[in-house]
Design a protein around this nucleic acid. Structure first.
Lengths: 244, 244
DNA sequence: CGCTTCATTGACGACGTTCAAGACATGTGG
DNA sequence: CCACATGTCTTGAACGTCGTCAATGAAGCG
C-alpha cells in the first residue's frame, strides 16, 4: 500500500517526474529517455546490485526504499546511502558498482541502459545539470552524516536518524502538531547506518521512548509529539538554518 | 618551499591545469575563465571561509592543504573534507557556505567570481562535466570515509588516514620500496578527521611506530617501510581492486 | 504448533575518552 | 646564555559508553 502501482510507463504520470534526474528534461528529451528506459521491480530483501559487478544500467528509485552499503572482509558493514524515491543509482562513466544496493522494501526502479544514457547525457545539458545538482546534494548529505558518525553519541545518532526520516517521509497527520511515520529500516539496518550495534540501537530507541521523546505503535510505527525536542536530542540547531 | 611560487597567472603554466575544474576547457574557454579569475593566498591557520557566510567566489586549491569542517554548538568538530591541490571549493548555485574552510599550510587559491562562473558554466558543458566528475569522486571519497568513521577501530583509522595521505602526497623516494611523506595535519586535525581525540591519535601513532608499521623523524615526517603492511592495518583490501 | 525472523533486555568487559602531568621544541626577553 | 612562556605532542590512570555474548520475548507463517 505504500508501494503505489507504477509500472505503466508514461513519464508524464511518473510520481518522481519533477525530482529525479529527468526533472529538467523537456518533452523531446523525455521521448529519448523513454526509448532507453524500462522498469524493474525488486522484492524486499533482494539485492539490486552487488559491489564489484558490472552494471548495465543506471536509474532512479520510483517507489520503495533501498540501501547503499560497504562491507569489509570480516563482515563489518556500513551503510553509506539511503535511497528514497527519485534518488539516482549508478555512476555514469564507470563500469563496476562500488557498493551493494539492497531493497529494504519492495522497490520499483526506472532503469536506463547505461551506454545510451551516457550518450544522451553528453548531448543534452539538462540531464547532466540535474545530475550535478543531485550529486552535490548527496555530497552534502554524506558530509552531514560524517558528523553524525564521527562525533555524536548513540542517543544523538538515533535521534538524528529519526529526524531525517521524519523530514523526508512524513505522512501528513490529521491531529495537528505531532509527526507520524513508519521506519523503513530494521534495527540492524539502522545500526549499519549509524555505526552502532543493533543492541545499542534497540536500547536507545527504548530510552527515547521511555523519556517521551517518541512513541511507538508496534516496532516500526513512530509518533513524534514534538519535533523540536527530537532535534534537540539530535544535537542539531533547532532553528533550521537553511541554505539556498 | 613546498609552496611553489605560483601567483603569476598564466593558465598554461598552472600546476593544476590538468586536474582542476578547468581541466577539460579549450583555449577559448580558458580565456573566459581568465577574465574572471584572481589569486588569493592564505597563511597557515587562517580561515578561508566561515560556515554560513555569503560566498562571493568559488575556486580551486592551487597549492597547500586546507580542511573542510563542521562544528556543533558545543564545540565538537568533524572534518568532512581534506582539500589538496586541484580540489574545488564552493558550490555553484548556493550563496552561503555550508562548512568552515581553514588553511592548514600556506595556501594559494585560484578564485572565480561566483556569478560569472555560474553563467560560464551554463554556457559551456566542459566545466559542468568536469565538476560533475569531481563531485562524484568526492562523493565516493566521503562514502569511503563513512566506513572508516562508522566501523573501524582507532588503530585502523590512523592506518587508513596515513595510507590515504601516502597515496596522494608521496615524494618519489630515492631508496626504492619505502614510502615517505610529511603529515600536513596536526594531531588535533587528524583527530577531527577520524572522529577521535588527539590523545587517542597520539597513542595509536606511537603504537604503529612501536610495531614497526611506520617510522617517524620528528613528529610529522613519516616513513612507511611496507605499504602493504600499512594497508592491512587499515583493514583495506590489499589487492587494490580498482574501478574505472 | 514449531519454526524463523526481528527485537528487547541483562551482565560483563574492552576500547576510547577524560583529566592530568610532563616532555619537547621554538621563540622572547633579560 | 639562561629563564620563561607557548604550542604541540606524549604518556598515565580512572572512568564510562558502547560492544559482546546470551537469554528471552513478540510477531508472522507454514
Amino acid at each position: 500500500m505504500n508501494t503505489p502501482n507504477f509500472t505503466a510507463g508514461k513519464c508524464s504520470d511518473c510520481p518522481i517526474r519533477h525530482r529525479a534526474v529527468c526533472a529538467r528534461c523537456n518533452a523531446d528529451e523525455l521521448v529519448e529517455l523513454d526509448a532507453i528506459k524500462y522498469y524493474r521491480t525488486y522484492e524486499a530483501g533482494q539485492t539490486v546490485i552487488w559491489s564489484g559487478d558490472k552494471m548495465g544500467f543506471v536509474g532512479s528509485v520510483v517507489s520503495g526504499v533501498a540501501t547503499l552499503t560497504q562491507t569489509m572482509e570480516d563482515g563489518r558493514t556500513q551503510m553509506v546511502g539511503l535511497l528514497l524515491p527519485s534518488d539516482f543509482v549508478g555512476r555514469p562513466g564507470r563500469d563496476g558498482a562500488a557498493y551493494n544496493v539492497v531493497a529494504t522494501t519492495d522497490v520499483v526502479m526506472c532503469c536506463f541502459r547505461k551506454k545510451p544514457f551516457e550518450e544522451l547525457m553528453s548531448k543534452t545539458p539538462h540531464i547532466a545539470h540535474r545530475l550535478l545538482e543531485m550529486t552535490l546534494d548527496e555530497l552534502d548529505a554524506a558530509r552531514e552524516w560524517m558528523l553524525v558518525l564521527g562525533r555524536k553519541t548513540a542517543r544523538e545518532k538515533i535521534a538524528s536518524l529519526l529526524s531525517i526520516i521524519a523530514r523526508r517521509n512524513t505522512t501528513p497527520d490529521n491531529d495537528s502538531v505531532s509527526t507520524v511515520f513508519d521506519l523503513p529500516l530494521t534495527r540492524e539496518a539502522m545500526a549499519d547506518y549509524l555505526g552502532l550495534t543493533l543492541e545499542t540501537v534497540s536500547r536507545q530507541v527504548s530510552a527515547l521512548k521511555r523519556d517521551g521523546v517518541i512513541q511507538l505503535q508496534g516496532k516500526r510505527h513512530v509518533t513524534v509529539p514534538d519535533m523540536t525536542r527530537l532535534m534537540e536530542e539530535a544535537g542539531d540547531d533547532t532553528d533550521g538554518g537553511f541554505l539556498i
